[in-house]
Write a protein that binds this DNA or RNA. Structure first.
Length: 112
RNA sequence: AAUGUUGGUUAGGCGAUUGCACACGAAAGUGUGAGGAAAGUCCGAGCACCAUAUGGCAGAGUGCAAGUUAACGGCUUGUUAUGGCAACAUAAAGGAAAGUGGAACAGAAAAUUACCGCCCCCAAGGGCAAGGUUGAAAAGGCGAGGUAAGAGCUCACCGCGUCACAGGUGACUGUGGCGGCAAUCCAAACCCCACUCGGUGCAAGGUUAGAGACCUGGGCUUAAACGUAGCCAGCGUGCCAGGUCCAUACACCGCGCGAGUCUAUUGGCGACAAUAGACCAAGAUAGAUAAUCGCCCUCGACAGAACUCGGCUUAACGACCAACCGUAUCA
RNA sequence: GCUUCCGUGGCGCAGCAGGUAGCGCAACGCAUUCGUAACGCGUAGGUCGGGGGUUCGAAUCCCCCCGGAAGCU
């Protein structure tokens, strides 16, 4: 779990990022990001109903959170990021998800 | 022994490291952390506010009896009916001589019936409903007597209705007498009868902060309009409605001590109740309970709290326990 | 969190105080035309979302599920 300062919370911000942000994706997940005024990075997770029922969705969210944790200090600041899950995420191992995240972040140019 | 019936329990376990939420703590840290269905939202309550929720109509629900409960449409024990060899299971199970309506096709006729038919008779006219056909359903059934032919017209048995007696808190049951069949089915058709129901939901509601400015239209206090119920009455407020701009809360409380959990005893066939002792056991708000690794086994289904309880319903891999039934074999 | 509505041929819809399930377009065949379209004639296609109940009989009435849509805050 991320500590509170890194979390993306408000519904408005989610909508703003979806509207204004840039998209990068691969088979596992999609990344949406936008530059922000905040000092810290803000990270949010989005898992739609396509992925499964509430148990599988919840599991997918947890795995993504766990996968995200080691990457946090490497990401450039002043950005808001959303990771969007695709189907089958909950079956994959956490290290795979971490690699996928690193891959998208690198392509987005957010790795410092 | 296998099968069956009923009821219940459980819901992978242990350890290490790294994390998350909450509580306590100065800190280090310590403790706790999803379910039997948390689900569907189908019922019933608590709690909160709305007008002290008042009267009538309309509307909705329930419908065998007694009990149980905070309450219920739930549950328990019975009654009756149906199914099963049985253990047992299932049932919205009041009223059709209050009224309205419906019963396709077929059939003479689907409700005060008469086509064929039977009988008396020259005929006219009259008597009859046994037999025939249709249909889901056709005016008690069956046998005997009786008759012109017939008919509960009479009788026995069965069914039905009703009265009395007995048993039972009661639904109802049993026995006996009497009636002589009173006019089919449908009320999960309208309806009648009995009983119950005010509305809205924690995004309720409260705290602090805020509660501002402008424009347009209507009304002028016996009014309009609004006030959370479909209509009327009654009650309350005393300006109302629409639009634009600005600010804001996604803050805090409500929110975890409760019809609470566990154990024991007592009462009751049971649902359940009473008493005593012990315990405090999730409370998030983009929303916690996870990740990685090791070992073991029967190799793990359905599935994730969002104000809280009592039920019902639905989903589902298995494992285990208890009681009972009939059958077969053995003793 | 709560409320309401809808599922009927391939598509869009009727039929719902119970009695043999229809319409338009599309499809197929015939006819017409030099050929195509339109017009005309004909044909096929439905366990009425699923399961149970009431009834002699259910698309229709009642109950429980499944899927979809809309609304309130």
């Amino acid at each position: 779990m991320l500590s509170k300062q890194y979390r993306l919370k408000k519904r408005k911000s989610f909508n703003y990022i979806y509207k204004k942000g840039k998209h990068v994706g691969n088979e596992t997940l999609a990344l949406v990001f936008v530059a922000a005024k905040m000092k810290h990075i803000k990270i949010g997770f989005s898992v739609s109903k396509k992925v499964g029922n509430s148990v599988t969705r919840h599991k997918a969210t947890r795995k993504m959170r766990a996968a995200c944790r080691p990457l946090v200090p490497m990401i450039k600041e002043n950005h808001s990021i959303i990771f969007v899950a695709k189907e089958g995420v909950e079956k994959k191992h956490v290290t795979e998800i971490t690699q996928a995240m690193a891959n998208t972040l690198r392509r987005a140019g957010l790795m410092s």
